Amino acid sequence: MIAKRTLRAALAALLFSALAVPVANAAAVELMHVHGLAYSPDGKQLTIPSHQGLAIYNGGHWSRAFGPAHDYMGFSVTRRAIYSSGHPAPGSQLVNPFGLLKSSDGGRSWQKLGLEGESDFHVLATSYDTSTIYVLNGQPNSRMSTAGLYYTADDGKNWQRAAAQGLPQSPSALAVHPSNGRMVAAATDNGLYLSRDGGARFQPVSQGAQVLSSTFSLDGKSVWFGSYRQEPQLARLDLSTGKTESIRLPVAGQDAVSYIAQNPAKQREWAIATFKRNVYLSADEGKSWKQIAREGRTLE
């Protein structure tokens, strides 16, 4: 195989501050696992969830987030909130698994959105501005009658099953358009598939390689995706032309891109994480890369 201040700017700054993850100093941070990759809305923090809670990269330094080291899965950040699933930390009184969780204060507190004790969504994606949520459900639960692809536009109060016609197999990763909650991309062993009708029908947009990760650019004009075919690859699909452009990748051998994130405040900046727990930053849309973690060992 993420001078005088106007009232709007002040309010935005407060919101960004609230959504930044609170951190604790740490002598060394090791990435035992990588379960996601996301920037805070102000672009200052890059967050990596894992079995041991949240690791934070900010200003060239790594730290651990305050609070219990929950096992966050399906971690996804929108402009106003964080959504996740997973399992509670050892000794926690929380129900296992979490079901669907939401945090509006950068992970300081979490709101239960249902399905606790029932479902653990490893494959979960959100629309950055509409907050539409898609999940891959592995088995029936109290709100989903069958396994399959589902989405909600009201924080889990109502779930709609997507027919997913044309999708050859269950996706290993999902991505949702930032401003159109009905457009969703699915990464599969047979390529990248795109739906424009809420997952009812999918069409292939890139085939010939095993696609392992994907995300929409925040301007909604392209999809970035990581794949593997004899070697790891990274590419950008232009949604208006359908053309795919290869992006220089600092990864080789038996490794591949597992997560991709774009900085909302500096949209030329991108981050990638790999299956071997290597993490890289690019300030020029993939023309050059800086490594900030090597096989789980964080670099400063």
Rank of each mutant, 00 (worst) to 15 (best):
G74Q: 02
P90H: 09
V257D: 03
D197F: 09
V29C: 12
F121C: 01
A3Q: 14
S92T: 05
I56F: 09
L212K: 12
D155N: 13
A26F: 09
A55W: 11
T132V: 10
R268W: 00
K276T: 11
D238M: 03
G67N: 10
A20N: 15
G198V: 04
P178V: 10
D71T: 06
P204Q: 12
N190E: 15
S103N: 06
G36R: 06
A175H: 09
T132M: 01
R79H: 10
D105K: 07
L149Y: 06
T132W: 02
A185Q: 11
A69T: 14
L218Q: 13
K287W: 00
A209G: 00
S76P: 00
T244L: 06
N141R: 02
D238K: 03
Y128D: 05
R5D: 12
L234N: 01
R5G: 11
Y57H: 13
L281I: 15
W159K: 02
A235H: 08
G114C: 03
S40Y: 05
A55S: 15
M73K: 09
G253R: 07
S109L: 04
I133R: 00
S195F: 12
P140K: 03
A13F: 04
V211N: 07
L19K: 05
G181V: 10
V279F: 07
V123I: 12
D105A: 03
T78D: 04
S142A: 08
Q207V: 14
D197N: 15
D255R: 03
